[in-house]
């Protein structure tokens, strides 16, 4: 099983192979109270980020081109991206997420992909 993450937005889906060590998940929960007031976790977030190498052409079973990355970036509206992982990233998932990407570098370009999602798919 390859170590991949899949981002699905509507009918568009891309599968990427993150640069090892760049995948981070967790944080961003909606915590209330604290200090002298008992704290409570009102909402659970499934956020994360990873980096991939941008390629000029579609590789075998991987979609790392600029156009493919652009196709899953969230536009105006509700979060609409589903995230799932395979291989060593099998436990990673997120639903109804807002996804952003930043492409950086001149010769060898990398794309930092981040997502802010929730625990359950929208009904």
């Amino acid at each position: 099983m390859p170590d991949t993450l899949t981002f699905t937005r509507g009918s568009t889906s891309i599968t990427v192979s993150p640069i090892p060590g760049t995948v981070r998940v967790g944080g961003g929960h909606d915590d209330r109270g604290g200090g002298t007031i008992p704290s409570a976790r009102a909402g659970i977030a499934l956020n994360g980020s990873c980096e991939i190498v941008v390629t000029a052409a579609t590789a075998a079973n991987l979609q790392h081109t600029v156009a493919e990355i652009l196709s899953v970036v969230s536009e105006v509206g509700e979060g609409d991206v589903e995230v799932s992982g395979d291989g060593r990233y099998a436990g990673i998932q997120s639903h109804a997420a807002l996804l952003d990407a930043t492409i950086q570098g001149d010769s060898v370009q990398t794309a930092a992909i981040s997502w802010k999602g929730t625990a359950k798919a929208r009904a």
Binding site: G43, E78, G79, A97, L98
Partner: peptide
């Protein structure tokens, strides 16, 4: 650079709903 005007609300079932108002 494309900046999203994002917000989030938490519903009573413990889910966070992210929303992008503008770009």
């Amino acid at each position: 650079s494309v900046k999203g005007d994002d917000s989030a609300v938490t519903t009573a079932d413990g889910l966070i709903h992210n929303y992008r108002n503008a770009i």
